[in-house]
Nucleic acid binder design. Structure first.
Lengths: 223, 223
DNA sequence: ACAGTCCTCCAGAGATCATTGGAGGATGAC
DNA sequence: GTCATCCTCCAATGATCTCTGGAGGACTGT
């Protein structure tokens, strides 16, 4: 029968949809978009049990959205490709544009009553600034995520260490901060903190997730 | 607590994912991408009960992916925007690229052992051909879907009527056929049928769904 | 008012999913 | 070998989703 084949096709398709249909799994995808990570690290950061995280990762793996790599006793998960990050970004954008609930939840989380979107730097602008060496690019994510993948030319200054680096940054020229992505508070916080110190830092539009989704180059390891 | 707000944000986001997480709902989205339709018509075409279809449509509506319009006793559903079609297309593409199961199910449904992708016309090529009046563009979908939205300049020749129109098409110049989208067999069938009559018809890459997702103009009503 | 159509809501049964703890497999250090 | 670590698998519970029929709401035509 013809419609059997059709139903089977949609069944297979829905596997991907289902994988994106759980808040926990979306959180894992968001973290995986920062770079590869172990199960334990993902579970700890996302605040869920190891077995729970593992189970969700299996679902993502079954949908072929993530791949694994074993190193010793650890298993590293990573997104299966930039197109997965791209799909996730597209879904977030649609959700945000279509649903007032989502925008409200986002504003509540980012703690932005209005928009403090002065001092946004686009990806194109950043590229130009980096080429000319006219910018100090600060990655405020945890070292773990920085090591797993960052924008070439950035230096890692985790939010907690920002206070200690204020003087170094004061003498730098233009400062641009970024973090995980547009659903991440860390760069907002960093700009606020630096602003309190009299340093007019700006924020990169979005963050690592969207950088990766755009297919831009990613560096791994230290420096 | 900060992570409460974060969890709430991901809960809201997952509503969209969940909406795309059911084969039946995906089938409805595919049909809705053709143009607005009533619940009864959707249920009949997709082969599900009215109450089932209505329930699934409620889920899509709750996720703000579709909108409704009442006309007399009928309720017309339509996609909330082209970005929804775009998201669906992106999801299909990822699923197809990532999952061998999906490609296999697709090939089984389309009945293509290899690829008979000779005679594909890109959207850009079609645009050029239409501007020069050098093409007869045939929409082989059911009249209902043609009326709800079609490519400007196309004429509706449903698959079942194709036999009766063979002579008219034989005297036409270049013939290009299209249907719902890349997961739809009708244009494949049409090209095969016309080929059997000695008419070298070509197929538009993809179909109405992708046309809409690309934000290209859509005409409604007759002719 | 009344009947007819189209749709949504409700309630219940069955299926599927999420989470949890515990068992066990794979690997590395010793 | 033994132990420790990291992860996956299994089993069981409770939660959620799906589908179905029936009731009822909204609207039209007479």
């Amino acid at each position: 029968m013809d419609s059997d084949r059709r139903h089977h096709l949609f069944d297979e398709l829905a596997v991907v949809g289902k994988a994106f249909g759980s808040p926990k799994r979306l959180e894992l995808v968001e973290l995986l978009a920062q770079g590869e990570r172990t199960v334990e690290s993902l579970a700890r950061t996302a605040g869920m049990g190891m077995t729970t995280a593992s189970a969700h990762l299996q679902v993502l793996k079954l949908a072929n959205l993530v791949r694994t790599r074993r190193d010793g006793t650890k298993v590293y998960y990573r997104l299966a490709g930039d197109d997965v990050a791209e799909l996730y970004v597209a879904m977030r954008r649609v959700a945000r544009e279509r649903s007032a609930d989502v925008s409200r939840a986002l504003e509540a989380y980012l703690n932005l009553p209005g928009s403090d979107e002065v001092g946004l730097v686009s990806r194109a602008d950043l590229k130009r600034l980096l080429e000319r060496g006219e910018v100090t690019l600060v990655d405020v994510r945890p070292p773990e995520e920085y090591l797993a993948g960052h924008i070439p030319g950035s230096q890692n200054v985790p939010l907690g260490d920002l206070g200690a680096q204020v003087e170094q940054l004061r003498s730098a020229g233009a400062v641009v901060a970024y973090c995980r992505g547009s659903f991440c508070v860390m760069a907002h916080d960093a700009v606020r903190i630096l602003g309190g110190e009299g340093i007019a830092a700006r924020r990169l539009e979005d963050g690592m997730l969207e950088w990766r989704a755009a297919g831009l180059p990613v560096a791994a390891g230290a420096s």
